[in-house]
Design a protein around this nucleic acid. Structure first.
Lengths: 160, 160
DNA sequence: GAAAATAGTTAACCATGTTAATTAATTATG
DNA sequence: CATAATTAATTAACATGGTTAACTATTTTC
């Protein structure tokens, strides 16, 4: 017999919230003919400063597939597949690094940049309504809670 | 050029957190030979009171596949597939409803119940360490933030 | 100059999800 | 009460997103 438990409740809340957002995200991206995963790559290539990866990994040069894989926590093979779609859609171009021919640098095309800008507008309007009821302090406290969790998971090896 | 924005930051935080948890969840469930999705079904059949679905949908009778689909926000066809695996593993049994032969009531087998109990122990130890730094009030505030977001998404149609 | 490391691709695969069509049982209705 | 509509579940065909393992090509290291 399972009992009420605040810790478990916290986790189910986060899962529910991120599922719901994912669904809404899909609804937004579909309008622009891409998937949420593809959007995330575009935002990474546009170096959206709100993405957590950039805190520990500031980027000067155009990103490589390897870095996308790290940022998104998926395999490189998977990134290859996702990128192929974006390249076919002419939203991203891949250029060999001059100093190291193994590397390929990824940048947004003009069309890619334009798409990000268009989607950015929709995203901001959506977020404004979503978070209307919260103060800046509320939101900061919320993200600090998450940062603390993420740190706990980084330091400990919580899964034995 | 994308700028810093607290709303966007909140969303990326939640995405990162739920991804990390999902990965840790997978690591836990793998040890027991099931997937995270299959675990979720077992917890629903065990009526874990921390699952948000039960707040609005208290269940007296054993659940049906249709209800699992609702709770997990996926198609019924998908639930059929997931259940087939659990039934093959003899963790779940399906019995025709006496009053309505269309319906099939799902219950955990003894093995299913035992598995849930074993996993519950691991889950609780994991959570205890994960949330060590937070007070009850911290956690309540956090879940209230999420409840407010979920409500905002339910009422408005945020995606135009 | 050979061995090791790095970046990327390809191929084969699995889990999870979808929609559309079908079967069977129950409920509503004219 | 017979027929139509609804409900629950399944099946089949398919898309997507993810994996690992094997491979190629290029740099780095020793």
């Amino acid at each position: 017999m399972l009992k009420k438990n605040l810790n478990a409740s916290v986790i189910f809340h986060v899962i529910k919230l991120s599922e719901t957002w994912k669904r809404n995200g899909d609804a937004i991206t579909q309008q622009f003919g891409i998937t949420t995963q593809q959007w995330l790559i575009l935002l990474l290539l546009a170096k959206d400063p709100n993405i957590l990866y950039f805190k520990d990994n500031p980027q000067e040069k155009p990103m490589m597939a390897k870095e996308l894989a790290e940022a998104m926590n998926v395999s490189r093979a998977n990134i290859t597949n996702l990128l192929n779609v974006l390249i076919r859609k002419k939203l991203v171009v891949q250029l060999e690094d001059i100093h190291d021919k193994r590397r390929k640098r990824l940048t947004l095309t003009e069309a890619g940049k334009k798409l990000v800008d268009k989607m950015e507008f929709v995203r901001q309007e959506y977020n404004k309504r979503l978070f209307a009821k919260f103060s800046k302090a509320d939101k900061l406290q919320f993200t600090e809670f998450i940062d603390t969790c993420l740190q706990a998971m980084r330091h400990d090896n919580l899964v034995k």
